[in-house]
Every structure is written in structure tokens, then in C-alpha cells.
Nucleic acid binder design. Structure first.
Length: 896
RNA sequence: GCGCAGGUAGCUCAGCGGUAGAGCGACUGGUUUACACCCAGUUGGUCGGCGGUUCAAUCCCGUCCCUGCGCACCA
């Protein structure tokens, strides 16, 4: 055994020590040739620019728990880690740095040089989150770490692009897309978040009708800054108010022009004035109206959200929001602004850049999803099980309304689209309104490798959406696109569990399922566990900008990784959000300390019997705790089966703190007295060893470092082995003790513990909580001799006497328990009034219970309808409470 | 607007037809030879509102009110 442990557990050194040893011993390696049943998880690759936040902690701790538990079930485990190149985020970060340090833009450098800078940045900062995951204790197979920009992975992206292009599922077209004026790229629908705008305004303005004297039409809009791009005004065809206007022209105030008045079903006569200004270049619906009615498209914006020369000299170069005010002002000056109302609407924001997106017509690549039917069916019939299940419905809804995916991004950092245009026709081809395999013919080259005569071609400049690489993650990390299969894939695919946040259900999970079917011919994972979102105490989502997100590394430094893991998991319910509070981590730390001290206490009693698995001649208290340990193991099994990680943690906590430390250890302390029976001492030590040994195994997935440390201190494992790789036995720790004996012992122990509780209560009532100078007299029910010592010890008594039929003096406090009546005579301290009050209170409670039961039993309907069992229970209860009431009344009477 | 969660002790959450539970907090008392990151005890609930089903409802049904999430949005 090691040197005597210190009173306080210091996790820091212990944790890094064990992590290093595990890594050195190659404990995390998932062996594709291993014999055990395979268990695999792929990590949701964190953003390479990212740093660890509490969401990661929760998510990755759950994965680590699953992986570690699977190893201890004897499985061959692969937890495959990696990072994501995060196109926009990473590129922005590097651009920001260039702007700050060198005062240059990426265009000053050129594509190639810029990408070199990004790689440099990645090499320097990209590993941070991986280091942080290691500090958390994550048992990933680091030898297989992947990055979405790795060469093999890059090829995969090109290959699937080519596949889908040839299949006709990928095409290019000029469409209305979500444009981010800050990142200067198109975004997919999923990257746009609708945010309610409480301070919007609805501007009412009037346009003059051409060819008529002083006839005006009133229009309501939230975006007067786009009116320069108006190419029509529209009314509902059924709207009689404006029927005669249809076919006429209205005058757009600036730049002044005549635009047609058209009729379209889309217009809601109830809204505003029932007249819509149609700006096909700047609104999705307007664009459709424009298409239907063959309207001119005038784009008055620059890509960065400023207005261009088509908006006229007053507005050219002005920011869109400034232009909104300026346009309204100008209308006002012209006498054409009727009124401005406060208005609330919702506007789409760029998820990453957090600026309002601009609907914009541009040339982009789109994809129709493959294997949607398989994906839908797999989730609907639980081949892929979602937890919590309600996410199934969200998934089904999204799949049913699925839209083509805009996959091109106007960025440099990412997977460049593997499309080359014939040099002499490039301009023409790139300007074509639509482009697909059957249209382009030989003038376009689409392949994984560049054309052999590359100088004759021009490559498409865009890169692909980052999620276009993530959706291959489960299999592209296990084989390259040039291999049909690999041993790793054969062993570990499909993966078992995917642990991720519900916020990326569409972005990632749904798409991975489709990709799995399309390229691997089967589902990518069998279970999806959606974690909770970590919020602060007030319920706000954690974010860097709010500053309400503590740095997990600080928490680890203060409390230890095990404490953070345990504390967070203990309060992480499935299905709802987690409200984080640092106190929970403190509780985790306290629990670690508790375990540490319980182990230390065992060390103080002498040599640990490292190989003992059952106890010889156990006391009833030993049998009781061993039985509870067996039950714990069964309960954990059940909780794990339902992925109730918080319940697992709570059960581990309750067993150890309450059952083992507060009750068993306290009951056993007598065995360590100088004059105690050596055989009893040995049995108790053996019980502690059996319990600690099994318990460390059960706790290990949650608190891997500390349990490994104690496992080592106690030499529970064989030389050169680790707890983390030790299979948990499934046999009972009770050995061959008969079920009858176990039940008898547990009943007896429960009765003693109950009596202890009541005795403590009596002491506390009389302000004697700490006093040991108390004698209890028991008027027993049955044989209580064997209980006396422990009862006295736990209740804190000087002496316990047994006197059958004991008649107490007036006013002696008493507790009625299943072991008998427990009297607490107080020489010279009897306070008759206090005891009367106390008994009166108890009587009140008992009478209330009795009333409730009697009411039920006197109800014919209840007696006639309720099941026998329930009626029987009620009768027993009535008897119990009636007896109790009688007893209490007798006692109160006895007080005089 | 549609859909999905959730509303239980001061806080965080279990329970989901038959006596309302835990942890933390608060309060009281404690150096009992592992642990004050501790021990013992106490307090604390019209189980969101209103109806209904049932012998019996926190639990099932309806409805309404709040909170969060997703989807669609009238410019």
C-alpha cells in the first residue's frame, strides 16, 4: 500500500498522471482485429477553431461514459475523434488576424498564400480543443484522429460531389439564396435563424398612377430601401378596391420609372393596404411573383449590403439600414410618405455572423438529397432510435418538407468544388442560368482528380459547405474512398451510439443518415442520444458574448475533471435543458473527497485484502450493504439501458454517501475498537474491500481518474493492468448467502436504522443532539439483543437497556418503532409540557392519516370497486394508524 | 399560426392512477478517533388554472394560461 493518504484529495496531479499512463499503455486503442464485440462512437467533430465549453463537456463526458462502460463490459471499443475545418469560422478568424496585424485582406494575398496562412493558423491553434478533451479524461483513440481537411477526407468530398453530379442530384442554378453580407457567401436555409424584431417599422408610402390626375396608391413596406429595385406593384386579383388599376402603370418615385400594376394571388388584401411593392431581386416571394409575371430584376445592392449605382447617386455606397432611413426621409420630402407605424416581424439572421441575411439572386450549386426514403423509414421504425423520442417527429417534419441544399460557399477555406470549365468557354458556362451534367457535356470536367491538361481549364472557385463534409464522418473516417472496405470499417461500422445536441439534428444527424445509406448502404449509427443544452442559472443559453459561460478548464483546475464530469452529469436530465450552477461541480468535488476519505478510512484499519470477492461470516449490516450493492448494480443496468445518465449518477451517489458511509461504516465502527472481536473486525474489513472493489468499478465511467487511483492504491488489479480495462463481474457480491438470510438481515437492519432515526429525533427535540450521556430503554418487540450495540452507537447513547413491559415515569419521551418502544428517560430533565406538545404534534399527524383512510373505507363505492389488494392495504393502514393514535393518546394521558 | 417539450418544496429535478420524494439551500445542534469539501436533526408542497373520466387523479382526457424549442411566416 502507498503512503498514508492526505486528508484532502488533490485531483490535479492524480488526473494527469493516470491520463498519461492510459495513453502510454495504449488503453484507448480500438483494435480492429480485437475479439470482443465491437462498440463504436464517432465524436461530433468540434470546430477546429473552438475552445471547450460546457456543452462539449456534457456531450463528451457522456460519450466517455459509454465508451468506458463498454470496455468494462469486455467490448472492443473505438471512440474515434477528430475536428472539423469550420469554413466560415476559421476563415473569418484568419482574415481578422490579417486585418489586425498586417492590415491586409485575403485578396491581397491571393488564394494560395491565404490558404497557407490558414494552415499555419490551424497548426498553431487547432489542437487546443483536443488537448482540452484529453484533460477532461476522454478515452478517444487518438491514433485515429481525423480532420475534415485531411487528404483522404478531401478526396471523399470530391468523390461524393462527383457521384451526385453524375446522378443528377447536384446542379448549378441562379436562384434566390440566403446571402450573408458580412461573410460574403451564400448560406443554406439551416444556417439562417429567424429572430423577432420588436422595433421594426412599417412604412406607408404612396405611388402615383401614371396617366391619371392625382391618383395615388398606398403601399405598406418594412423595407423602403429596396424600392429602387421595384419593378411592379401587385394587388390581389379579387380585391375590388384596386381592380381597375391592374394593367395600368405606377410611378416609382426614385429612380423615377413607370412600373406595371399586376394581380397576383400571393397578395393578402388584409395586410397593410393590400398593395405590395414587388422587388424581385430582394425578396423570395417577390422573386417568384417576378418569375410568374416576367418582371425585370433590378439588384440595387452590393454583396456587402451597401447600395449600388442602380439605387441612384443619393444612395450609392450607403449601408442598407442607413438607406432605409434615407429612403423614408426622401419619400417624406417628396410628400409620398404617408405614415410610419411600429411593427414587429421576424428577420433571418446569419447563424455565424449574426447579421440579417439578404435574400439575393446568385449562381450557386444545389443538391437534392439522396436516400431520403431510407432515412425516413429508418428513424420512423426505430432502426435508428432517437432519444428522447420526440425528436423523431421533428426529424420527420423536416424530411417531409426537405428543400434542395445550397452547398456552394464563396470562401477559400474548405473543399474546393471539383468542377473545371473549358478555358475558352468558362465565362459563358459560368454565366449560364442552369447547369447540370446533361447540359454541360464535354465543356465541363467533374472529377476527383484535376484534368490532365489542367492549364486548359478553369476551376470553379467556390468551396463546399462545411456540413457537406461532416455528413460523411461516420464512414469516411474509417476508410478512404479508394478502398472498398477496411478492417476498421468491417469491425466498427455501423457505429453504436451518436451523442450530439438537438440543435444539429438537421445540419448533421439527418444528413449523416442519408449519406450512410447512399455510400455505405446502411445506417451510420443505431442510437442517437440528444444531449441537453446547458444554460445558466437564469435559463439563458450559454454564449461567449453573454459571458455567462465558465471556462471548463478553470473548473477542472479548481475542482478536478472527475468533479466536473460527475457534477454536470448528475443534473443533466434527458429531454430538457440543464441549468448549470457551479455548486453542482462543487458537489462533484465533495463527492470525490468523500470517496477519497472513505478509502483512507479503510487504509487506516490495516492491510487491504486485494483479491477478496466475498465475505466470510458477514454481520447483518454487512449482508445489508452487500445486498444494496447488488441492487445498485442492477439499478445502474436499468438506468444505463434508458440512457438516464443523471439517474446513474444519483444512484452511485446515494449508495455510497448514504448507504455505505452514513449507515454501514457508522454501524461498523464498533468493530474497530481496541477490545473488539478480531473476527468481526476482519469480516468488516473484508466487507469494505468487497464493496470498494466493486463500487470503484461501477463508478469508474463517471470518475475515471480517482477510481483508477484508488484501484491502484488498494492493488485491486493485477500488476500492469488498469481498472479502465477490467471487466465488471456480473455475479453477486453476496456469495452463497441464501435469499432468506439476506431478506431477514435486511429487514432487521432496516428496523434498527429506523429506530436510530427516531432516537436521534428524540434527542434533537430535547436539544440533546450532541450528548452521549443518554440512556435508552427499549420495551422490545421480539429479539433485539443483537441490535443493541449498533443502535447505541448510531443513536449516540451511553447505554441501552432492554426491559420488557417497561413502564415509564410520567412524561418520559418515547418513540414507537418496529423494534419496540424506545424510551429516553431524562433524569431531572423531564419537560412534561414539551413532551405533551411533541406527542400532540405526532398525534395530529396520525389522526389526519387515520381520517383519510377511514374516509376511504367508509365509502361504499371504494369498497365495491377498488381491487382487493388496495382495500387490504387500506385496512392495514387503518389498523396501523388507529393503533398509533391509541398509543399516543395513552401517552398524553399519562402525562397528566 | 402549426408542431414538440415542460410548468411538483426557496433552487435543480425524480415520481406519472392507490400514504407527495431526493439533492442542494435555509434553520437548529455538533471537533462522535475517514471526511467541516463533514455529521445529526428540523423546516418547507391547494404537484400552473379550470373542467371532465374514475371508487380514487400530481399521474388519464379536454381546455386555458405561462416558459423553452422546432417549423412556417403578411410585404
Amino acid at each position: 500500500m502507498a503512503d498514508e493518504a492526505s486528508k484532502a484529495y488533490t485531483p490535479g496531479e492524480v488526473e494527469t498522471k493516470w491520463y498519461d499512463r492510459w495513453v502510454e499503455a495504449n488503453c484507448f486503442r480500438g483494435d480492429e482485429k480485437g475479439d470482443g464485440e465491437a462498440y463504436s462512437i464517432v465524436i461530433p467533430p468540434p470546430n477546429v477553431t473552438g475552445i471547450l465549453h460546457l456543452g462539449h463537456v456534457l456531450n463528451n463526458t457522456i460519450q466517455d461514459i459509454l465508451a468506458r462502460r463498454a470496455r468494462m463490459q469486455g467490448k472492443e471499443v473505438l471512440w474515434l475523434p477528430g475536428t472539423d475545418h469550420a469554413g466560415i469560422a476559421t476563415q473569418s478568424k484568419v482574415e481578422q488576424k490579417l486585418r489586425k496585424e498586417d492590415k491586409i485582406t485575403r485578396h491581397d494575398l491571393g488564394r494560395e498564400k491565404f490558404l497557407e496562412k490558414v494552415w499555419e493558423w490551424k497548426e498553431e491553434h487547432g489542437g487546443i480543443i483536443i488537448q482540452q478533451l484529453k484533460r477532461l479524461g476522454c478515452s478517444c483513440d487518438w491514433s485515429r484522429e481525423r480532420f475534415t481537411m485531411d487528404e483522404d477526407y478531401y478526396k471523399w468530398i470530391s468523390k461524393i460531389f462527383v457521384d451526385l453530379y453524375e446522378e443528377g442530384l447536384i446542379y448549378r442554378g441562379k436562384r434566390m439564396v440566403n446571402w450573408c453580407p458580412k461573410s460574403l457567401t451564400a448560406l443554406s436555409d439551416e444556417e439562417v435563424i429567424m429572430k423577432p424584431q420588436k422595433k421594426s417599422k412599417l412604412y406607408y408610402m404612396r405611388y402615383r398612377i401614371a396617366g391619371e390626375d392625382d391618383r395615388w396608391v398606398e403601399i405598406a413596406t418594412t423595407r423602403p430601401e429596396t424600392l429602387m429595385g421595384d419593378t411592379a406593384i401587385a394587388v390581389n386579383p379579387k380585391d375590388e378596391r384596386y381592380a381597375d388599376l391592374v394593367g395600368k402603370k405606377a410611378i416609382r418615385p426614385f429612380p423615377e420609372a413607370e412600373i406595371p400594376v399586376i394581380a397576383d394571388d400571393h397578395i393578402d388584401p388584409e395586410f397593410g393596404t393590400g398593395v405590395l411593392k414587388v422587388t424581385p431581386a430582394h425578396d423570395k416571394n417577390d422573386f417568384e411573383i417576378g418569375q410568374k409575371n416576367d418582371l425585370e430584376i433590378i439588384d440595387v445592392f452590393n454583396p456587402d449590403g451597401t447600395l449600388n449605382e442602380l439605387a441612384g447617386p443619393d444612395f450609392e455606397g450607403m449601408d442598407r439600414f442607413k438607406a432605409r432611413e434615407a429612403a423614408a426621409e426622401k419619400l417624406d420630402e417628396m410628400g409620398q410618405l404617408v405614415k410610419v407605424e411600429d411593427y414587429e416581424n421576424a428577420v433571418g439572421y446569419s447563424e455565424r455572423a449574426d447579421v440579417p441575411i439578404e435574400p439575393r439572386i446568385s449562381m450557386q450549386w444545389f443538391m437534392k438529397y439522396p436516400c431520403t426514403d431510407e432515412a425516413k423509414a429508418a428513424v420512423a421504425n426505430d432502426e435508428i432510435a432517437f432519444r428522447p423520442v420526440h425528436h423523431k417527429k421533428t426529424f420527420a417534419n423536416w424530411m417531409d418538407g426537405i428543400q434542395d441544399w445550397c452547398i456552394s460557399r464563396q470562401l477559400w477555406w474548405g473543399h474546393q468544388i471539383p468542377v473545371w470549365y473549358k478555358k475558352d468557354k468558362a465565362e459563358e458556362l459560368q454565366a449560364m442560368e442552369s447547369l447540370s451534367a446533361d447540359i454541360a457535356g464535354d465543356d465541363i470536367y467533374v472529377a476527383v482528380e484535376p484534368p490532365s491538361d489542367e492549364s486548359e481549364w478553369v476551376r470553379d472557385e467556390d468551396v463546399l459547405d462545411t456540413w457537406f463534409s461532416s455528413w460523411l464522418w461516420p464512414f469516411a473516417t474509417m476508410r478512404s474512398c479508394e478502398e472498398d472496405s477496411t478492417d476498421t470499417l468491417a469491425k466498427f461500422y455501423p457505429t453504436a451510439d451518436l451523442v450530439t445536441g438537438p440543435d444539429i439534428l438537421f445540419f448533421w444527424v439527418a444528413r449523416m443518415i442519408m449519406a450512410g445509406y447512399r455510400w455505405q448502404g446502411e445506417l451510420p449509427f443505431k442510437n442517437v442520444y440528444f444531449t441537453s443544452i446547458v444554460r445558466d442559472k437564469k435559463g439563458d443559453k450559454m454564449s461567449k458574448s453573454k459571458g455567462n459561460s465558465p471556462d471548463p478548464l478553470d473548473l477542472i483546475a479548481d475542482y478536478g475533471a472527475d468533479a466536473l464530469r460527475f457534477g454536470l452529469l448528475r443534473i443533466a436530465p434527458s429531454g430538457t435543458d440543464v441549468k448549470y450552477d457551479e455548486n453542482q461541480v462543487k458537489e462533484g468535488r465533495n463527492f470525490a473527497t468523500k470517496l477519497w476519505n472513505a478509502a483512507r478510512y479503510r487504509e487506516m484499519q490495516g492491510e487491504v485484502t486485494s483479491d477478496v470477492t466475498t465475505v466470510e461470516n458477514p454481520s447483518i449490516f454487512a449482508i445489508d450493504i452487500l445486498a444494496k450493492l447488488d441492487q445498485l448494480q442492477k439499478d445502474l443496468e436499468e438506468s444505463y439501458g434508458e440512457y438516464k445518465f443523471n439517474e446513474v449518477a444519483q444512484r452511485l451517489y446515494d449508495f455510497f454517501w448514504s448507504n455505505y458511509c452514513d449507515w454501514f461504516l457508522e454501524s461498523a465502527k464498533g468493530d474497530f475498537a481496541d477490545d473488539a472481536d478480531p473476527a468481526a473486525k476482519a469480516a468488516t474489513c473484508a466487507t469494505m474491500d468487497v464493496v470498494l472493489r466493486r463500487y470503484l468499478m461501477l463508478l469508474h465511467p463517471y470518475m475515471p481518474h480517482l477510481t483508477e487511483e484508488l484501484w491502484d492504491r488498494f492493488s485491486f488489479g493485477e500488476e500492469g493492468t488498469f481498472l479502465m480495462n477490467t471487466a465488471i463481474p456480473t455475479d453477486s457480491v453476496l456469495g452463497d448467502i441464501s435469499a432468506t438470510d439476506v431478506e431477514a438481515a435486511q429487514t432487521q437492519v432496516a428496523a434498527i436504522y429506523e429506530a436510530v432515526g427516531r432516537a436521534r429525533n428524540l434527542k434533537a427535540t430535547y436539544q440533546l443532539g450532541a450528548s452521549k450521556d443518554i440512556t435508552f430503554i427499549i420495551d422490545p418487540e421480539g429479539d433485539v439483543e443483537s441490535a443493541l450495540e449498533v443502535f447505541g452507537k448510531l443513536a449516540g447513547a451511553k447505554e441501552v437497556k432492554v426491559e420488557a413491559g417497561y413502564t415509564a415515569e410520567k412524561g418520559v419521551p418515547v418513540a414507537i418503532c418496529s423494534i419496540g418502544k424506545v424510551y429516553m428517560p431524562l433524569d431531572g430533565l423531564i419537560d412534561v409540557d414539551a413532551e405533551r406538545e411533541r406527542l400532540g404534534k405526532e398525534l395530529g399527524k396520525a389522526e389526519k392519516e387515520l381520517e383519510k383512510v377511514e374516509a376511504k373505507l367508509s365509502n361504499d363505492k371504494f369498497v365495491n370497486n377498488a381491487p382487493e389488494k388496495v382495500i387490504g392495504e387500506m385496512r392495514e393502514r387503518k389498523e396501523h394508524w388507529a393503533g398509533r393514535v391509541d398509543e399516543l393518546k395513552g401517552m398524553i394521558d399519562g402525562l397528566g
